[in-house]
Amino acid sequence: MATLEDATRRQNGGEPITRERVRHLPGELGTWVFILGDMTVFALLFGIFMYYRDKQPALFAHSQLTLHKSFGVINTLLLLTSSLCVVTAVRAVRKGAQRLPTILLGVAVVCGLGFTLNKFLEWGGLLSHHHYPDTNNFYMYFFVLTGIHFFHLLLGMGVLTALIVLSRKPSLSEKEMMFFEGGACFWHMVDLLWIVLFALLYLVH
């Protein structure tokens, strides 16, 4: 029976493909220790939210209606756009492009700033309607989850700024390239976590 391995071996002129040659881990190993560790913590947070939501479904559903979905939608679009810019910037850097990566990363930072502005408007709006973190469990989770995510977004903007500095260099060493990829992966994580948060906080009924 022909296995997949045989097939790839045939394609490769009989030579077995070693794992090292096929796999490219973006960034360095440590980045993934951090990203997977962080995502585990967030998974725990999401689990906790679902658990408590299950205990007070009416309260959570009622409070959820006071959120403006448009804030969430705009922030999702902003982060998706920024992620697209970042991934395109990584490709451009790999190809040795000069100005394009800096511009793309700049756009990503502007998206992050837009997210920040939007977040403050949203939090301010909730607070002005007397929806405080200690009003009920829903708002407590809303503020804590979005707050922890926002803290990551700020870290991410710091990382993107470092990447902008790197992208202005004429060429990157292997180590710098690894940092570049790792930083980009961190930003994608911030985006990914927001998408889950958006669904969980604004959409799930």
Partner: peptide
């Protein structure tokens, strides 16, 4: 090097 990232993660987990 991954020990560095691990320590950053631990620091953030305390926050």
């Amino acid at each position: 090097r991954w020990l560095g990232y691990f320590n950053v993660w631990v620091a953030i987990a305390f926050v």
